[in-house]
């Protein structure tokens, strides 16, 4: 193995560049080093002005997502050695506006997420004083997969529909809506359906499936969206085609 690897990092300094430009760096190549370690090495040893987000370095916080060789990845979980002999191309997460270097503006996602009401909605006044909500292992299993989302937004970067149609509410938000819909404690399905049945909701999705491929937590947003379409269609048929007596 070589003892160093080339990293081509996209830089964007609003005061200096009119558009993002690739800049080449050389970093030590060690088996245990991730792309994030490479970036930290650049910042510590070569150019302290390089800006990027990171926090936990263990795939939990979801803040170090970037496009590595064109593929949205958590840089703390992507090893430099997998790209040897290099170069490793590091770009800001696709489909989001770039603020500086590898930092993207996530305002759009932050505005979309609460639209699907990703929290438990109750129609009664039960409080914690009345005791816990009991949930069986089966009831937990029903939504558990969708609850693993860490809001890293890799799925938004992988989704061509979101890139081309910024109105689309997007993969993670819909997967989270599904997570609460499937929760036995929740009563908010109808409220979320009213949001997601709009054309900016689930219908923009054309099942490219890339959101699921890139998800580091195996949440399967693509599956969630298709299931949501089916649910929306079933509810519509029930509400508008079936005679009243047959509706549930």
């Amino acid at each position: 193995m070589d003892d160093s690897i080339a990293m081509q990092v996209t830089r964007y300094r609003p005061d200096k560049n009119s558009q993002p430009v690739p800049v080449d760096y050389e970093v030590p190549l060690r088996t245990e080093w991730t792309v994030l370690d490479g970036l930290n090495h650049i910042k510590a040893e070569q150019d302290e002005t390089l800006s990027f987000r990171w926090s936990c370095r263990m795939g939990i916080c979801g803040s170090c997502g970037m496009n590595v060789n064109g593929e949205p990845r958590l840089t703390c979980a992507t090893f430099l050695s997998d790209y040897a002999p290099g170069p490793v191309r590091v770009e800001p997460l696709a489909n989001f506006p770039v603020v500086k270097d590898l930092i993207v503006d996530i305002t759009d996602f932050m505005e979309k997420l609460p639209r699907v009401k990703p929290w438990i909605i109750r129609d009664d006044d039960v409080t914690e004083i009345d005791g816990e909500y009991i949930q069986t292992p089966e009831e937990l299993e029903a939504y558990q997969q969708f609850s693993m989302c860490i809001n890293c937004m890799l799925c938004y970067a992988a989704c061509p529909v979101y890139g081309l149609d910024p109105d689309f509410v997007g993969p993670a938000a819909i997967a989270l809506a599904e997570r609460y819909d499937l929760d036995s404690r929740d009563r908010g399905s109808r409220e979320r359906l009213d949001v997601l049945i709009e054309k900016e909701g689930v219908w923009g999705c054309t099942f490219v499936g890339e959101c699921t491929s890139v998800c580091p937590k195996h949440v399967d947003p693509a599956g969630a969206i298709q299931r949501y379409k089916l649910k929306a269609a079933q509810e519509s048929v029930k509400a508008f085609l079936l005679p009243k007596a047959l509706r549930r």
């Binding site: 064109g70 696709a94 993207v104 305002t107 932050m110 490219v208 890339e210 491929s213």
Partner: peptide, 22 residues
């Protein structure tokens, strides 16, 4: 929310030819 100035990247018409899955 405070809006920060940012650079908006464009997606080319042939975005789907560069990647096998697309």
């Amino acid at each position: 929310v405070t809006r920060v100035p940012s650079y908006q990247r464009r997606i080319g018409v042939f975005w789907w030819v560069h990647k096998r899955s697309y």
